[in-house]
């Protein structure tokens, strides 16, 4: 009987502790970032796994490392990749990626023998059609190359769109 009463008093004390916690939280700063007016800092996106992108070659930094071996196409559970081999060389002619089917499982990144694939850190991606989600990764690579032609001479990776995962792989 007395033990039960004592337990209840302790229980009520624990309720007060809980209320003190929420009281503290009420007056602490908020974490939310109001998207269109502010964006997340890049350091906080380093481990974000966005849509796939092609990494750059070790020597030819404007080229993809892809050798069109089709391993990623076979490994993908969602059948979202379509790699067409080029006529003259092994490097691909087109590299289509349907983001609407991708589950971001990473099977393609693991299976690629040359490390040609990586997850990007693109958070802000908005489309109104499904077709716009079929991404042409070669075109995307070309755009990035046009932005920062050489990665070694511009190691400021926060400015470039190059994923850090690929940089680590290269090292």
């Amino acid at each position: 009987m007395f033990r039960a009463i004592w337990d209840n008093i302790k229980g009520i004390y624990s309720l007060l502790v809980g209320m003190a916690v929420t009281w503290d939280f009420f007056f602490s700063p908020r974490y939310t970032i109001h998207y269109p007016r502010k964006v997340v800092e890049r350091e906080n996106l380093e481990n974000y796994r966005g849509p796939l992108e092609l990494t750059r070659g070790k020597k030819e930094q404007d080229q993809t490392r892809c050798i069109s071996c089709q391993l990623c196409v076979k490994a993908c559970p969602g059948h979202c990749l379509k790699v067409t081999k080029g006529k003259e060389s092994k490097s691909p002619e087109s590299w289509l990626y349907d983001f609407s089917l991708c589950c971001l499982c990473g099977a393609c990144v693991e299976v690629c023998p040359t490390g040609a694939l990586a997850f990007s850190h693109k958070v802000y991606m908005v489309t109104t059609t499904r077709e716009a989600l079929i991404l042409d990764l070669l075109k995307d690579l070309k755009e990035r190359v046009a932005e920062t032609p050489l990665l070694v001479e511009a190691p400021d990776s926060t400015a470039s769109q190059e994923p850090s995962a690929a940089v680590v792989k290269e090292a």
Binding site: T22, F25, F26, F27, S28, P29, R30, Y31, T32, H34
Partner: peptide, 13 residues
Amino acid sequence: KVAGFIQRRPGPY
């Protein structure tokens, strides 16, 4: 608003 502040988000905004 109170719910948001307690969960450290801004609530309706």
